[in-house]
Simulated scan of single mutants.
Amino acid sequence: MELPLIILLTTQVILPIFFLLWLWLPQPADRLGWLMRVVYGACYFAFIAIIGRWDFLSTVLVIALPVIFLVSALLAYRRVRHRPWSRSTAIMRTHGFTAAMAVFFLALTARALSGYGYQETAVELEFPLTAGTYYIGQGGSATSINYHHTDRSQRYALDIVALNPFGARAAGIMPTNLADYVVYDRAVKSPCTGVAISTHDGVGDNRISETNTQDPAGNYIILACGTARVLLAHLRKGSIAVQGGELVTAGETLGRVGNSGNSSEPHLHMHAYLGGTLDYSAGEGVPMTFDSRFLVRGSTVTIP
């Protein structure tokens, strides 16, 4: 089992189950013990709700798990409501570690939430995919929710996948068939009216979990959208429908989602930058908004 999958299962399945069971076993000695467990668990659930990749399992769990935790906490309180507030004569020694961990996860949550805004002037675009429900796997202005943010030109990049009716990006956690990923082969639309200043085709799709670092963007299109340049990357081989220098209109089909380049599974990568012109790695990344909405990890977009 690959390390990212182990981390995902640990943080989004095993630890939530632990916090649910910990409300009951071992039974708290007093009401303060119950409260500390609830606060610690609540801080963890807040953290994982923000930074988790829920499209691997189901986006329904983002709401379901906190609700289950809240109900479980209330039921667990019924067992200790008649107990004294605290039986410990050394509260910090008894509950200090739990309190410290709660503060730790609360701080991590605050840090991730700092990525929900931006200071630069954003470029307003149209969402580049067809009808369906989409999930932002990487996005925002903090590295904890967008690993692209460390790259100057990709600071506000988005990695976009599509969701099935169960809120998952694929039929299974990590299927090996590209067609099992909902976003695969979806039509990619132009997010603006402008010029396709550069295109690149001919790079084959990768197998799942394999990447092509020699052609990082794979098959791609660079658009001139006013003063900004927009990269649409990891497209399917042979699907690009425009050539460099062609005028494009917003909503025009430009290609189809693939898994080419430095991509371990099908998704659409896009980022906007100033300068750099044809070199998508040399410009200065700028925020993108869609109907004035700044998208971050966990955001969903439904196109009717």
Results as ranks from 00 to 15, higher is better:
Gly245Cys: 13
Cys192His: 02
Cys225Gly: 03
Pro266Phe: 15
His95Thr: 02
Leu65Ala: 12
Asp180Gly: 13
Leu70Trp: 09
Pro4Met: 13
Val195Ala: 09
Arg207Pro: 08
Gly255Phe: 11
Thr277Ile: 03
Thr98Lys: 00
Leu232Val: 15
Thr130Arg: 15
Gly244Pro: 06
His82Tyr: 12
Arg111Ser: 13
Phe19Pro: 06
Tyr280Asn: 00
Glu252Ile: 10
Thr227Phe: 02
Thr277Leu: 01
Ile221Val: 15
Glu2His: 03
Ser153Trp: 01
His269Ser: 07
Thr143Glu: 14
Thr98Trp: 07
Thr121Phe: 08
Ile17Pro: 08
Val123Tyr: 01
Val195Phe: 04
Val248Trp: 00
Gly245Tyr: 02
Val123Asp: 00
Thr277Tyr: 03
Arg186Glu: 00
Val123Phe: 00
Ala112Ser: 15
Ala179Gly: 02
Phe105Leu: 10
Trp85Asp: 13
Ala272Asp: 06
Ser281His: 08
Cys43His: 03
Ala162Trp: 13
Leu178Phe: 14
Ser190Glu: 11
Ser299Met: 10
Gly117Ser: 07
Val195Asp: 12
Val286Met: 05
Asn259Tyr: 01
Asp30Gln: 07
Ala196Met: 07
Asp279Ala: 03
Asn212Cys: 10
Thr59Tyr: 07
Trp24Met: 08
Gly41Met: 15
Thr199Ala: 05
Asp151Pro: 12
His200Gly: 01
Gly226Glu: 02
Gly261Glu: 13
Phe56Ala: 04
Tyr77Phe: 08
Tyr181Ser: 04
Leu15Trp: 12
Ala49Asn: 11
Gly283Gln: 03
Leu5Ile: 04
Arg83Pro: 06
Glu124Ser: 08
Ile6Val: 05
Arg53Gly: 06
Val67Arg: 13
Thr253Phe: 06
Asn177Val: 08
